[in-house]
Structure formats: C-alpha cells, structure tokens
C-alpha cells in the first residue's frame, strides 16, 4: 500500500479517456478546457470510495466500463449545481422590490456575489438589471463585485463563455438569444453585462471589503463551513453590508442563532436578511 497522498491532478490521457467515456455513456461532450471539472468532481468521488486518486478511478473504469463506479462517474461529471437564475425567486425580489427601493434611495446599486463560482449568478443579476432597469447599466450605476476562492472557476466566470449544456440550465432562451453570441460550440455573454461585474479572488474567512454593499448574495456557501468559521464569515459579510442592506442565503440555510444583527424579511416567495 502506498503511503503517498493520492494525486488528484489529471493527466491529458486520463482526461481524454474520461471525455470519451462520458460521451459514450451520456451523449454529453465535455469541453477540452474542462480538466478542472474532472479534478473537482472526481477527486472527491475517489476520496469517498477510498480509491487512490483519479488515476485509480480511471484504471478501474478501463477495466470495467459499466457498473456502480461508472454510473457514479457519469453522474458526477454531468450534474452541475450551478444554473442561471438558480431558485428564481431571489432574482424576482431584486426586480420587484429591492432594485426599485435602492434606486430610489441612492440612485445606484452596489452588490456582492460572495461565492460566484462560474459566474451564472452575477450574470443573471446583470440580466435582471438590463431587462428592467436598463439605466443601471447604461449609466454605470450598477456595480457587482463577484468573488470566489477558486481562481479556476473565476477564470471561467470572467471569460463569460458557456457550453450549450450550461446555457440550457435555468436561462430563458429569449435572454440567451438577446445577451449571448454563439462562437463555435460555446456561447459568449455580451460585454455590456460583463462591464458591470468585477471578478476577484477572495477567501471569505479573511476578506475585508472596503465598500459598503446594498445587497450581498451568499447562497449555499455557509453549509461548507463549521460553526466557528460560519461566524467568522458572517462577521466579514456584516462589515461589508450597509445598515438596511440585504443578505441572501441559500434556500436551506439560516443565520438564526448565529448573528443577531440581522432581521428576516420576506419578499414575494423568498426570504432574506436585513442588517439592522
């Protein structure tokens, strides 16, 4: 038995094998630049199954192309939790209530997507603004700070390039044809939306944001932190929010009992937290 830690980086040959395998099993063609996806999805899968890294996953698939492991690999590689307009209602609440309220108060909106992943969330917000409050974009009155821990996902977010599978997820096709251009097999988002967003690498445990935000999206992030670190993240978030500013968490998350500085507000079908 090797005592060396498992290697979760993937070689070109392994990546090509996985791509071909996924194509045969699901009809889904992974883009050539998605090596990071193999690492981020199959690394944890190897760990859970006590296999020695992605190399062993690939070796086992080569030996047996069907069965339990094969199914798990296809599922891990084709399930994508990130979609445009994820959960719909938070974006509705921006359109119906928060954008109008904040525009009336101060004429501009400062918003932070604190774990923006591959960019679908900040771009969805920019689309809401463009559709319902076009002056926010044309007069540069909307500033979205979009941050993530991973430089790889940020690079993808910044590129604004999405595969067909990704633009199928949650994005009304009328917005697809309005805000994206097709280039080869990818779809590229318009520069007008990109201009409203600043992408930055940050660690939520240590981040200090100088600017006071009107709205912060911190959805499905706290679930990954232990209790004491949750408090640290929330302290950093609170310091970045102006009094009366709004915080959005994921549907299954709550800060009740963690931070008394917030009060719960219901807007339409979504719950959010307002800093007192």
């Amino acid at each position: 038995m090797s005592l060396a830690p498992p290697n979760n980086s993937v070689t070109k040959m392994e990546f090509d094998f996985i791509r071909q395998f996924i194509l045969e099993r699901s009809g889904i063609a992974l883009d050539a630049n998605r090596m990071y996806l193999v690492e981020s999805r199959l690394g944890p899968l190897a760990r859970r199954r006590q296999l020695n890294g992605i190399s062993e996953v690939v070796a086992r698939l080569r030996a047996q192309r069907s069965g339990d492991l094969a199914l798990a690999v296809v599922e891990a590689m084709t399930t994508n939790e990130t979609s445009f307009f994820r959960d719909v209602h938070p974006f509705e609440s921006l359109r119906t209530t928060l954008f109008p309220e904040i525009i009336q108060q101060k004429g501009r909106v400062d918003l932070w997507c604190a774990a923006c992943s591959t960019g679908q969330e900040p771009y969805s917000i920019a689309m809401v603004a463009s559709e319902s409050f076009p002056q926010l974009l044309s007069q540069k009155k909307l500033k979205i700070l979009a941050t993530d821990l991973s430089t790889e996902v940020l690079e993808k977010a910044r590129s604004g390039r999405y595969s067909q599978l990704e633009v199928n997820r949650g994005l009304p096709a009328q917005l697809l044809v309005k805000y994206f251009k097709r280039q080869g097999r990818d779809w590229h988002i318009s520069d007008r939306l990109k201009d409203a967003i600043e992408f930055q690498q940050t660690n939520l445990l240590t981040v200090r944001v100088a600017q006071k935000m009107d709205i912060i999206f911190l959805r499905n992030v706290l679930i990954y932190f232990k209790e004491d670190n949750k408090r640290r993240v929330l302290t950093n978030i609170r310091q970045a929010l102006r009094p009366g500013g709004y915080l959005f968490l994921g549907g299954a998350e709550t800060i009740l009992g963690l931070d008394a500085a917030f009060e719960t507000v219901r807007i339409g079908r979504t719950l959010c937290y307002r800093l007192k």
Binding site: S26, G27, I28, T78, T79, N80, S83, V88, Q164, L165, V167, N168, R169, G170, P172, A173
Partner: peptide
C-alpha cells in the same frame, strides 16, 4: 420555451419551471 439537445434532467425541470 426552448431547450437544446443534449440536455440534463435538471435542465428540463428548470425549463418547465420557467
């Protein structure tokens, strides 16, 4: 709405929501 093939079950569910 408009869904492009190939698609995942999740994508279809989201389009039905839309």
């Amino acid at each position: 709405e408009y869904l492009m093939k190939p698609f995942t079950a999740e994508a279809l569910r989201e389009k039905l929501e839309l």
